[in-house]
Write a protein that binds this DNA or RNA. Structure first.
Length: 512
RNA sequence: GCCCCUAUAGCUCAGCGGUAGAGCUACGGACUUUUAAUCCGCAGGUCGUAGGUUCGAUCCCUACUGGGGGCACCA
């Protein structure tokens, strides 16, 4: 079927196919037609005995003696990323997926006229090539395979992009595979992300957390203030929302006895995209019974610091919490992070006492004087906006900002001793909010009141406000243990570890 | 949602109101130690799409589409 389709494409639209692809299609045909070339253009397997990385690890020291011969015969495969063909000797750089390269040398003396001629005719930049032969060092001392047998492992029809010029931003994102072939930083980002995820899961496992997955399609969205994506279920003939947060389900899990639980999965928010926001983003949420927002801050610091350690494995900063950003900046995630008071630092910066009792009028006057605009202003929104205006940019070290106004945090419990605030913190790193943590609200009566307030906000025109979730309230009525909870943006964690923009931390970010 | 910038060869980019340019790639040839190989030769373009202005538009104008940045919103 696929062969047929390809053949038709060759036959019917040859003139429309640009030259480089047409030439490669012809080579593909020749490989497929001539059985003596072994396996065609896309063999099922090639007889690989070693990886390129393995050959380098085992025989790399040959490079110290130019012209050395190991006597060892290996079979390796990789993508041809450079070719330097002369009349009777051809050089190709074969690249493994992680970017490790090895040189293949195809010499007339080793393979004969026929094989050398076919090699030069049929092997293009970008092809996956299998070679077998002796591991040697070239006269210039480069570790090489002196080829005895070669075989195309997979023919590339599309030409490799210019390896010396960086792809433009759009091509990098749309054709990330090319970015990965071409750019070491792109490959490193993927590895760092994978290591980070593994590290987080290990930290959780070490503290007896278990991982669950909760619904991404929800009949009612909640757990955060954000606008959702709406979709439709044919089977249930109903509107569904892509989740904006897993919170309300994870709390149900805690009610059910999953005392330490976390989830790493995607959230979707139908809002603007910029260097710190993506419409779909990976989110970590964790809930720990019988602790509060202080305990969950400890946990969060451990998660991030262990991730920094994991990201540094194999670098000159191994064993430290100092990460290196893409621009070369060193950023220290180590030590105990400061825990500062939102009202306290705001009062200090504004030069006047601001408390939960400060009136909306007074706050609005400060905002007006400072040129800070606040939509649908209330006490909480004004305090948060003013805090961001006065304090946020001055934070250079990772910092927990503690104790938020009650209006902005409908799912959080009141502070145990300070009226008007809730036990919530935001963790700021690199100028953005990396994580947020709470002493969770577990009183079903108060929770219902908060939902009702939110519904009123919604009626007032706040389309991010939550609606009353009766199913969630029913779960709470069965009793949720006291707990601390936390949410952390995974893409932002990668940003903090690598210094990159959010789209660089996501392998395939949304593109239109 | 609003504002600004941007789209030229497979890739990266110049360019200009008067027949479209480079490097790499590709194609033909030479070359047995290259490594951005070198040398000779030769192709490759509806200049994002659709309108408009003009004797003439890749260039100026308008709209649309894609991309980037800023603002707003948000984590």
């Amino acid at each position: 079927m696929s062969e047929q389709t390809a053949d038709n494409a060759t036959a019917t639209s040859e003139e429309e196919i640009f030259e480089q692809k047409r030439v490669r299609l012809e080579k593909r045909e020749r490989l497929n037609e001539d059985a003596s070339l072994g396996g065609g253009a896309y063999p099922v397997v090639v007889p690989v005995t070693d990886t390129i990385q393995g050959v380098r690890a085992r025989w790399g020291s040959l490079e110290e003696t130019p012209g050395a011969e190991s006597g060892a015969i290996v079979g390796v495969a990789g993508r041809v990323v450079f070719q330097r063909n002369t009349g009777k000797l051809c050089f190709a750089s074969l690249q493994a997926g992680d970017g490790t390269r090895i040189q293949a040398m195809v010499s007339l003396a080793e393979v004969g006229e026929e094989s050398l001629a076919r090699y030069k005719e049929l092997v293009d930049l970008g092809d996956h090539l299998f070679v077998s032969g002796e591991v040697i060092a070239s006269r210039r001392g480069e570790l090489s395979i002196m080829v005895q047998e070669w075989q195309v492992a997979a023919k590339a029809l599309a030409p490799l992009p210019n390896m010396y010029a960086e792809l433009n931003e759009e091509t990098r994102v749309r054709q990330r595979y090319l970015d990965l072939i071409q750019r070491e930083q792109a490959r490193r980002n993927v590895v760092t992300r994978a290591r980070t995820m593994a590290s987080l899961r290990k930290t959780f496992a070490d503290q007896d957390f278990i991982e669950v997955e909760t619904p991404m399609l929800q009949t009612m969205h909640g757990g955060a203030s954000a606008r959702p994506f709406v979709t439709h279920s044919n089977a249930f003939d109903t509107e569904l929302y892509l989740r904006i947060a897993p919170e309300l389900y994870l709390k149900r899990a805690v009610v059910g006895g999953l005392d330490r639980v976390f989830e790493i999965n995607r959230n979707f928010r139908n809002e603007g995209a910029d260097s710190t926001h993506s419409p779909e983003f990976a989110m970590l949420e964790a809930y720990q019974s019988y602790t509060d927002y202080n305990g969950i801050a400890d946990l969060t610091q451990a998660l991030v610091q262990n991730a920094a350690l994991a990201a540094n494995v194999g670098t000159d900063r191994e064993g430290t919490h100092v990460v290196e950003w893409a621009d070369g900046t060193l950023f220290d995630l180590g030590g105990d992070w400061a825990r500062i008071s939102m009202y306290g630092t705001l009062s200090e910066a504004a030069g006047r006492e601001i408390t939960p009792e400060t009136s909306v009028e007074e706050l609005q006057a400060i905002a007006d004087a400072e040129g800070v605009e606040v939509k649908l202003p209330n006490h909480g929104k004004l305090v948060e906006e003013l805090w961001e205006h006065f304090v946020k940019d001055g934070l250079t070290r990772p910092t927990f900002v503690m104790d938020f106004p009650v209006e902005t945090s409908p799912l959080t419990r009141h502070h145990r001793s300070i009226p008007g605030v809730v036990e919530k913190w935001d963790l700021y790193v690199r100028g953005f909010e990396l994580a947020t943590g709470y002493s969770e609200l577990i009183d079903p009566v108060v929770q219902r009141e908060r939902f009702v307030q939110q519904a009123a906000e919604a009626a007032r025109g706040d389309d991010e406000a939550m609606s009353v979730d009766e199913e969630f309230l029913r779960a709470l009525e069965h009793g949720m243990p006291p707990a601390g909870g936390m949410g952390m943006g995974m893409d932002r964690l990668l940003m903090a570890l690598t210094g990159l923009g959010i789209r660089e931390t996501i392998l395939f970010p949304l593109v239109k």
